[in-house]
Amino acid sequence: MIASAKLKNLEARHRALRGLRDFFDERGFIEVETPTLVRSPGTELHIEALEVVGAGERRYLHPSPEYAMKRLLAAGMTRIFQVCKAYRRGELGHLHQPEFSMLEWYRSEAGSEAMIADTEALVARLAELLCGEARIGGQHGPIDLSPPWPRLGVQQAFERFAGTGAADFAALLDDEERFYRVLLEHVEPRLGVGRPTVLERYPAQMASLARLRSDDPSVADRFEVYVDGIELCNGFGELTDAAEQRRRLLAEQATRRQNGQPDYPIDERFLSALEAGMPESGGNALGLDRLLMLLLGTRDIAEVLSFDDAAI
């Protein structure tokens, strides 16, 4: 038995997909599809992949299409987007499913700023399409989605919402578990209240695949958008320096081995593409299911899926 509210949500998903395809098409983006079965699922410390048995040589379901999409940028494509399923092992909750829908897009000759502007315009546009206005209800009252959105640095956010001083913040960066406890307990719930929050200036330790900011190399050119306490997307001014990228991947791989986590190979074809030359680029990955949750006013990801993990 499927509740009629859910069928309405599936129709809304269809309209959102059409809307976002129009949005990117109007802006000169090409929709691409990249393999979901990959050789390297990445070396992120806190993202575990699902291994596929029986695919010949070992394969994984991709946790994100970013390596393949960056290879397309290096090959000369300039504006690309993709809507795909992505997979992450062990992630299951009100905001997580082991299989979820990701919207990812890239622009060459661009950085974070262009990606933030795209995100603002896209979210406002889809809200107008689904809700009739760039405004949604939140847990603490209405949220005005119209651009531009307020910015907040990570350190600033910790100071404002958790009372973390500069010295304490530096100490938190050396204690990953505590950093994320404070983020989850005190900071995240206060982000995206009234207006979306663009959380930016991530500490260099959390640069991931982002370049460091030229104006302040202690922080990365990385941002996330929060709406109503929910993390919606993660964007980068992409790291294009192949040597630096290799150093980061090797360091993560070594840490994973040390922790006894599954040992994932480094994607050499991705690194070769960087070596051959990837243009300055911006990229953003947005959780499509979460955006639908926010626009449809539900706090449970299962409500926007045809069948969630418990229903398959």
């Binding site: 992120e44 806190h46 909750g93 905001l95 578990e177 994320y180 993660n234």
Partner: peptide, 14 residues
């Protein structure tokens, strides 16, 4: 109980 995790961060169960 609730599973919570920032995309690139440590996972917890609240």
């Amino acid at each position: 109980f609730q599973f919570v995790k920032p995309g690139k961060g440590v996972a917890f169960t609240r």
